[in-house]
Each structure stands twice: as C-alpha cells, then as structure tokens.
C-alpha cells in the first residue's frame, strides 16, 4: 500500500463498491466498459449484461476466476499503450483521452512509415503526377522490402525521405495532393 497521502488522486474508500469506467481505444475504436470493483471482485457491465469475476495477481499474471473457469492474463504498460495477453492472444490498447479522434481527415494524403526500417528507394518526385497503386517509396525492414503505394491519384507535393535514410514507425515520407 502507498503512503497515506498519494500524489495520484485516489478515489476515496477503495474497498467499497463503486462505479468506474474503462476508457480505452483498441485499433482506433473506443472501448468503454463500466465496471465495479470491491477488493478482488470485478463486475463488468450494467443492468442484466454483467460479468463477474475474482481477479488475483500472481507475479505478473492476473488470474481471473469466473464461475468454474480460470483465465490467465498478463498486462504491461508501454510508453504509449497498454498490452494485454490472454490465452495466446495479444490486445493493444491506447488510453482514451479527449481529442484523440480530433485529427480530421484532411484534403491531403500523408504517406507514413508503416514500420521502422531503412528507405531503399524513393520513386516519388515532387510535383509528379501519380496514379493510385504507383510505388512511391520502398522500405526495407528485417531484410524484406515493402513497397508503399499511392492511395489514390494525385500530385506529389512533398518528399520527406531519401534513399538510405532510417525511418521510424509513423514518420512522414510523402505528401500527396489528391486529384480533384
């Protein structure tokens, strides 16, 4: 147990039943699950759609007992995400905060690195007209080549990468102005 005065705001009376909400995103889709906690007892859902379980921590495992069955889950927090493994399936969640979906679909297409790797070839040239499916950039990662193609017809308005450069996941590579 932590000190009596905690820096993180703690709900008072942790041991009494109280209503909370899991507010996460999975693959961009919000996941909001109301739950209640009383000691080791977790109740998910509201009304008649409820799931009740006793959750105990054993090392880094969470043992979830519900009725006759026990499920083992592991959870870890990364820099930006929450990772959960359950029965060999891994689920990745982002913590939901307001404005996460504020990034509106703009009028330009941004081609971003789908993985960390090295740029092998840049076919895109500033000002060039391209057709949907044209290869714009080739990236190599883990000794495989991946070709990034134009999502639609348009004109290349910016090229932000060069052959040989190392790129990180999500780096902006090419900006495409879609054809009107």
């Amino acid at each position: 147990m932590g000190p009596l005065v905690s820096a993180a705001p703690q709900p008072s009376g942790r041991e009494t039943q109280m209503s909370r909400r899991l507010a996460l995103r999975r693959g961009g889709t919000p996941l909001a699950v109301p739950y209640e906690r009383k000691r080791d007892r977790i109740v998910l859902g509201q009304g008649d759609r409820r799931f009740e379980a006793e959750v105990k921590r054993e090392g880094f495992w969470f043992m979830v007992r519900s009725g006759e069955s026990t499920t083992r889950c592991a959870i870890a927090r990364g820099r930006r995400q929450l990772w959960l493994s359950c029965e060999g399936r891994t689920y990745v969640f982002e913590e939901d905060h307001p404005g996460a979906d504020a990034k509106a679909a703009g009028s330009t297409d941004e081609l971003r690195a789908p993985m960390t790797g090295r740029v092998v070839q840049v076919a895109a040239e500033k000002g060039a007209s391209v057709r949907e499916g044209d290869v714009l950039v080739t990236i190599e990662a883990m000794k495989m080549e991946f070709r990034l193609t134009a999502p639609e017809d348009g004109v290349v308005s910016e090229v932000r990468c060069a052959p040989g450069a190392r790129v990180e996941l999500g780096d902006l590579l090419v900006v495409l102005e879609p054809r009107k």
Binding site: L24, L44, R57, L84
Partner: peptide
C-alpha cells in the same frame, strides 16, 4: 470478458 476484468483490475 475475462481479459476486460483483468484490465479493470
């Protein structure tokens, strides 16, 4: 659901 319960915990 068991995974969500673990997450809630």
């Amino acid at each position: 659901e068991p995974a969500l319960a673990a997450l809630a915990a």
